[in-house]
């Protein structure tokens, strides 16, 4: 059996004296969509940010495609990697943020070509062609020369997805991608994500969209207070949860 895309074993993280992650075990297989759900403060966004080392893991093992993220192992010690070494590994992990974080001084097209040209060394013409293809894929080919401030939230988020895809990642992380959007714009973004999942992209999605998790997710993981409360088939976890905490949460959001 192929090695999993994401493998977490006892991942711990604390901010000062606050334990945010208290030993997370989680496996995401290749081509799967894993949805992380839970109340705010449950640690799901922190865990997602640990996957590409935007947050440093304090304990436990966290590997992407067999490689430790942000560390090199020698014996029973983990040595943190330099920023430039971490950057190498992050190239293969795309991330989409709640607040889009598009580069406001660059057009939509330049946002998408920046990393391929500057980081991957793709020549400008090829990067441009690929960027236009990706913008077309997210339905924004006609907005290529617009600056982020001239785009709606939903359009910005779709450009952000195209920007992440431009680095040809093997894993995509989504941190509440629709939480900052007006309700009528959520659908377009979810459509793009659904399309990506159908194409076989491995995805870890922190979301409050129960419908999306049930329909697109291969696994649903319910987290609370820094631990995984229950995980499994989304229809079971979200339709007929075993744990009281899951039931209580679902009764509030549904």
């Amino acid at each position: 059996m192929a090695r999993p895309m994401v493998h977490a074993q006892g991942v711990r993280k604390h901010f000062g004296r606050l334990d945010v992650l208290k030993g997370i075990d989680l496996t995401v297989e290749r081509g799967q969509v894993c949805c992380l759900l839970g109340p705010s403060g449950s640690g799901k966004s922190t865990f997602l940010r640990c996957i590409n080392h935007l947050e440093r893991v304090d304990g436990g093992l966290l590997a992407v495609d067999g490689d430790l993220v942000g560390y090199r192992r020698s014996g029973d010690r983990l040595h943190e990697l330099r920023e430039s070494e971490v950057a190498e590994r992050r190239r293969e992990i795309g991330m989409v943020f709640q607040r889009f974080n598009l580069f406001p001084h660059l057009t939509a097209l330049q946002n998408v070509t920046e990393a391929p040209v500057r980081v991957a060394g793709v020549n400008r013409a090829d990067a441009r062609r690929e960027a236009l293809r990706l913008l077309d894929r997210v339905g924004l080919a006609d907005r290529a020369d617009h600056y982020p401030a001239q785009l709606s939230g939903g359009q910005q988020q779709r450009v952000a997805i195209a920007r992440a895809l431009a680095m040809k990642p093997k894993l995509m992380l989504f941190d509440e991608p629709t939480s900052a959007l007006d309700p009528e714009l959520v659908g377009d973004v979810l459509d793009v994500m659904r399309d990506l999942a159908a194409d076989g992209m491995t995805m870890v999605v922190v979301t409050h969209e129960i419908g999306f998790a049930r329909e697109v997710g291969d696994t649903a993981v319910f987290m609370d207070e820094g631990v995984v409360v229950e995980a499994g088939d989304p229809r079971r976890v979200l339709g007929d949860p075993e744990q009281e905490r899951t039931k209580a949460f679902l009764s509030k959001v549904l």
């Binding site: 590409n52 935007l54 920023e83 430039s84 971490v86 950057a87 190498e88 992050r90 190239r91 992990i93 795309g94 991330m95 943020f97 607040r99 974080n101 598009l102 580069f103 406001p104 001084h105 920046e114 990393a115 500057r118 980081v119 991957a120 952000a160 920007r163 992440a164 680095m167």
Partner: peptide, 26 residues
């Protein structure tokens, strides 16, 4: 916004490149 650096880092941009291409122009 610190989110700008995070976005640049998540694309594999190194700190110096992030400073030069993303942070300083803004």
């Amino acid at each position: 916004d610190p989110g700008q650096q995070e976005a640049a880092h998540s694309l594999g941009m190194k700190p110096a490149l992030t400073m030069r291409r993303i942070v300083l122009p803004q």
